[in-house]
């Protein structure tokens, strides 16, 4: 199972579009892209998960690492497009307490 990653930009934000399943096999790709974006100075990141129907503990850890990396570089890390299943997993693990969810069709000024 491959993970497909692409990105777009809105204002200061980099939107990372993820398609596929995030697990121990595919997660390193996502981590690498987050690291790459932050190292290029793009520390305001929204991970678009609307085409992701599965994230395991490895993926959750990578998102935690994303929050840490973005904040350490003066930015913010958000997610968008959560399915009900992902919302449940985020709530069960407490990830929703540090990784805020935004609506991509709303004004980016509301994402901070």
């Amino acid at each position: 199972m491959m993970l497909t990653l692409s990105y777009s930009n809105i204002d200061q934000w980099t939107i990372l579009h993820v398609v596929g399943e995030v697990d121990m096999a595919t997660g390193p790709q996502l981590r690498q892209e987050i690291v790459r974006q932050v190292s290029q100075g793009n520390s305001h990141i929204v991970v678009d998960l609307q085409n992701v129907d599965f994230i395991d503990s490895t993926g959750l850890g990578i998102l935690v690492g994303g929050v840490k990396r973005a904040r350490s570089n003066g930015g913010e890390f958000r997610c968008a497009g959560l399915s009900n299943t992902l919302k449940e997993v985020f709530a069960l693990t407490g990830l929703d307490s540090v990784l805020l969810s935004v609506e991509l069709d709303q004004d980016p000024s509301t994402w901070t």
């Binding site: 850890g61 990578i62 935690v64 929050v67 904040r71 997993v89 069960l92 693990t93 540090v98």
Partner: peptide, 23 residues
């Protein structure tokens, strides 16, 4: 510990077994 705990964001692991226990 909870993700809001100081220093917890430094550690990416710790979700697997708790998730199994919950699910």
């Amino acid at each position: 510990g909870p993700l809001t705990e100081k220093g917890r964001l430094d550690y990416e692991g710790g979700f697997g077994i708790p998730l199994m226990k919950i699910l």
